[in-house]
Simulated scan of single mutants.
Amino acid sequence: MNCPIDEKIYQELRKVLNETEIFCCEKEYLKLYNLGYALLERVEKGAAYVNEHIEPPSTDEEFFLIMMYGAMLVDAAGLLLKELKIKSPYQKGEQISYCYFADVCENQNLQFNDGTIPTDKEVWEYIRALSFAHPFETSRPQFLEKGEIQYSPAIIANIKPEFLPVDAEPTIGILVYSTAFPEIKVLNIPYMRILGYISSRYQLLALGTERIKQIIAEKKQEWVKQKVEIGANAIDTLKSAISIMENRHEETTLGDLVLLLEVQSTFEENRLQIRAYQSKIESTIPQIVTFVESLDTDGLNNYLEQILQITKPKYGGADYQIQKIFSGLNQHANEREQKWGLKQADAFYKSCGYKWVKIDVSQMGNEEIKLLVRIACEQEAQNKK
């Protein structure tokens, strides 16, 4: 068996959980989100370990690790299906539940009083309990005799070939003491059956992934019905689009456009230039609405990046000035950053901006200063063509 644990299964689960912010932002799905990522961390390690140890273990310690990491994979799938209320196909009574250990049960007399044999899941739990000896006594399996208690003092991880039939599968031996019989029994479990069982239950993660995809698809069906309200002005329309994107838990820079449109000119000299720049923004509204209503978040963000892009002047220090202006003149900057941003805005004006606009940092608000810097950069770039 080559790589019994298909790592693409858990990678797809991680990808789907990352596809949208609804799982980490909506209370209804927060438990699923936290559980999913907790499981993924364990599953990633477990999958890597099992795939690196396909050959039968040579020591009992190696077998313990296989069982430990295998249990992580099996339990992870079970927990995810439980959280998503998905019924496992491996239900008792279904033939598919007897694929890995049925002949082991028949050959080694592991059965219920009515002669039926336990399911693969029940045998797995039995093997797990015996191999780890929780902590020493194991009496939970229901196919034991009433009142029977079993003990497992050791694992024979590498049964010598001379003790096995010709062409026999590599086998793990589990020593069993029992109150129901005087002799020591050796429970022989083919190693590849154990790996096969782990792999089969791990693959149930894919059912969880499909259910999560369904949740996302249902959300998108709701979102596509939402329409941007075309307001009396561009600002109202943008605010409607922002509300829709926030409802989808998507981050955009639509708010930056609103701030630019809200700027009023302090000086008459800048009024026409500001109005012309704002008109260009207003002309982008129909395309923005199309992106929002078609659920094209990537297209929207790329379009907004183009709109808000600044072509920096080509003189020494321009890049630094622009960077500090926009990082310092915003609500998240501290007082020191604010003062430095204003100083750099004044330096920009004296170096280049004076040719195109009038900036007085002592009389203007941050948003107007940044808008005028944008206009000056744009005018400078056009003049250089």
Rank of each mutant, 00 (worst) to 15 (best):
D319M: 07
E293G: 08
S327Y: 08
E337R: 02
E282T: 15
I216A: 04
S283H: 13
E268T: 11
K227E: 04
E268G: 01
E218I: 07
Q344M: 01
L272H: 10
G316C: 05
E218Y: 05
N302V: 05
Q273N: 06
K225V: 11
Q214M: 10
W340M: 13
V289G: 04
G316W: 01
A333Q: 13
D298C: 04
E246S: 07
D296K: 10
L257A: 10
K213N: 00
T252S: 12
I274M: 12
N270A: 09
Q323P: 02
V258S: 05
Q287T: 15
S265I: 09
S294E: 15
K225Y: 08
N247R: 13
E218D: 14
E250A: 05
I281G: 06
Q306L: 09
Q338F: 13
I244F: 02
K239H: 10
D296I: 03
L304V: 13
A234S: 14
R211F: 03
E218F: 01
E293K: 10
A217W: 00
I242R: 10
E246Q: 07
F291G: 07
G299A: 03
E251T: 14
L295F: 04
V224I: 15
K225P: 11
A234M: 08
G341E: 10
Q221W: 00
V228N: 08
L261N: 04
I281H: 05
L260D: 15
D256F: 04
I285Y: 00
R275W: 09
E210K: 04
T253R: 13
I310K: 02
A333P: 03
G255P: 02
E262Y: 06
A241Y: 02
Q278C: 07
G231L: 11
F326K: 06
P313Q: 11
G328K: 02
L295S: 11
Q323T: 14
N270E: 12
L260T: 11
L272G: 06
E262Q: 14
L342D: 04
Q287C: 00
E269F: 02
S240H: 12
K350E: 12
Q287Y: 01
T209D: 01
T290D: 13
Y277F: 14
N233H: 08
Q338T: 12
K239A: 06
I230Q: 10
V228E: 10
F348L: 02
S327N: 06
K324Q: 07
E337N: 04
D256Q: 13
I307C: 07
Q226G: 03
P286K: 03
K225R: 15
R211Y: 02
D298Y: 08
Q331R: 09
I216S: 02
I212S: 00
K220S: 09
V263N: 03
E268H: 05
E229H: 11
E251P: 00
A345H: 08
I288Q: 07
M245L: 09
F267M: 10
M245V: 06
L342I: 09
T311G: 05
S294F: 04
